[in-house]
Every structure is written in structure tokens, then in C-alpha cells.
């Protein structure tokens, strides 16, 4: 397994100026090693989505630093952030978010289109990935001709097309039934085993337990980090259970 750091957050704060300031994230320190499989859990409003947006280079922190693929996201302008996002982050959404008028193949090839990769190269790469997710015979189907599980597999293939530093999955099985959920999560495991860094946001314990560790968020802060033994998938807590005590890979996380 690789030893570098895919993403690191240092004392990250994100404040939304609504009627009164809302601290969506309030001093978060987190390091995601390359090749790791991390799950993020927490009730709604705990800052999961904000964390996803920051790691996904869709947003910048109000305070602190977010480093993705070795680059400080806060230092980049909109264009550079878009490029970084396109090259280093792969997204998998709960609602699949495929382009409705593009075929499975074209959807998978889309990210490379924006990177200026030639048509032939794109198509070859997309075909290869679709075969790996088991959709070799569905390439020319439109999303509405595919089942939910198939759509999510297309989305996973699309997330992987640029060989990203990290794959961000936001409730990836939220719209799937139990059986297809297992299929998709098996695929996640498969790509993780092949070296892909995975970050899954979920509120379901059995989805999170597929990861190597679970980061519990509460009120914009890391409540605790739970290390899991990936071989037997039994939970193993790495920190105390006092909710006031924040733990993380980096010290001094107090905001």
C-alpha cells in the first residue's frame, strides 16, 4: 500500500454567513493516506457535505488548509481548482448524476473530454473501465436504460477515468436495494484493493464498516475516529468515548 498522503486537512474551518454565522466545520484535522479506505459518518448537519465539498475541491475553507494531491486548495483560483478536481478527484453521488443524453461510454469518457484527451484515447479508456465494472455489454445505453446498480457502476467508472488521487463517494448506495448495494460496495473493495484511495460518506453502519476506519463527525468537529480491522471487519475503537475529546491523526485540533 502506498505511503503518501492523498488528502490532508489542517485545522479546517468553514463558516457560512447566513442570518448568523454557521460553523459547518469547526477545526478539523484529518489525514487520508494514499490507498486508504475511509468512511465518514455523522448525523445530518454534522458537516459531512462541507467536508466532501472541501476534499472534492468544490469549495475552499474559511480558515485552515486543505491539501489535495499535494496542492493547497485555498491557494488556487477557480480555474486551477477545477483542473485539480478533474485530475485528482473522482465523484460518486447518491443520485448517480450521469449526463442523461450521453451513453454510458460517453459518460465515462466525459471527464477526459474536459482534459483535452483525444476521442480515441478517451473511448478506449472508458471501454476498459466499463468492462472492469462489468458493463461491457451496456456501453451504448443511455442512463435511463440502465438499472440503479448499473448507473452507479457507470458513475464509479467515470470517477476512476482520470486515475484520481481519491474517489469521493457520497451515500453511494443510498438509492440502491440491498443486493445491488452489495455489488457496488464489492466493486469499491475491488478498486481499493487495486490501490485506489476511497472516501465514503454514509449514514449507514454496514456501508461504513467496509472501510478501514470510520471518522465520526458531530457539529462540525471530529467526534472520534474508529479504526477497523479490515480482515475481519470488526469495529475497533482507537480513541476514548468522551465526546468532548477530539482525536485525529494530527495534534492541536482544538478550535
Amino acid at each position: 500500500m502506498a505511503t503518501g498522503t492523498a488528502v490532508s486537512l489542517e485545522n479546517v474551518r468553514k463558516t457560512y454567513q447566513l442570518a448568523e454565522p454557521v460553523h459547518a466545520l469547526d477545526g478539523v484535522d484529518l489525514e487520508i493516506p494514499e490507498g486508504s479506505y475511509t468512511a465518514i459518518m455523522g448525523p445530518s448537519g454534522s458537516g459531512k457535505s462541507t467536508l466532501m465539498n472541501l476534499v472534492g475541491c468544490l469549495d475552499t475553507p474559511t480558515d485552515g488548509t486543505v491539501v489535495v494531491g499535494g496542492q493547497d486548495v485555498g491557494d488556487l483560483d477557480d480555474r486551477e481548482r477545477t483542473t485539480l478536481r478533474g485530475m485528482t478527484v473522482g465523484f460518486v453521488f447518491q443520485t448517480f448524476n450521469l449526463m442523461p443524453r450521453l451513453t454510458a461510454l460517453e459518460n465515462v469518457a466525459l471527464p477526459q473530454l474536459f482534459q483535452g484527451v483525444s476521442r480515441n484515447e478517451r473511448t478506449d479508456r472508458a471501454r476498459e473501465l466499463l468492462e472492469r465494472v462489468g458493463l461491457g455489454d451496456r456501453m451504448d445505453h443511455l442512463p435511463n436504460e440502465l438499472s440503479g446498480g448499473q448507473r452507479q457502476r457507470v458513475a464509479l467508472a467515470r470517477a476512476l477515468v482520470n486515475d484520481p488521487t481519491i474517489v469521493l463517494a457520497d451515500e453511494p448506495s443510498g438509492n440502491l436495494d440491498t443486493e445491488t448495494e452489495a455489488d457496488v460496495l464489492d466493486l469499491f473493495d475491488e478498486f481499493h484493493d487495486a490501490g485506489t484511495t476511497m472516501l465514503v460518506v454514509t449514514h449507514e453502519r454496514h456501508v461504513a464498516s467496509r472501510a478501514e476506519r470510520i471518522v465520526h463527525l458531530l457539529d462540525g468537529q471530529i467526534e472520534r475516529i474508529e479504526e477497523l480491522d479490515s480482515s475481519d471487519a470488526s469495529p475497533r475503537s482507537s480513541a476514548g468515548h468522551d465526546p468532548d475529546e477530539r482525536t485525529g491523526s494530527a495534534p492541536g485540533a482544538n478550535g
Binding site: 480555474r79 478536481r85 478533474g86 448524476n97 449526463m99 466525459l110 474536459f114
Partner: peptide
């Protein structure tokens, strides 16, 4: 949003 998420510039 999808296009921008997967790397489409403005």
C-alpha cells in the same frame, strides 16, 4: 454541476 464536478472549466 456534473460537468463542473468532473473538471469542466467555466
Amino acid at each position: 454541476g456534473i460537468m463542473k464536478a468532473v473538471g469542466a472549466q467555466n
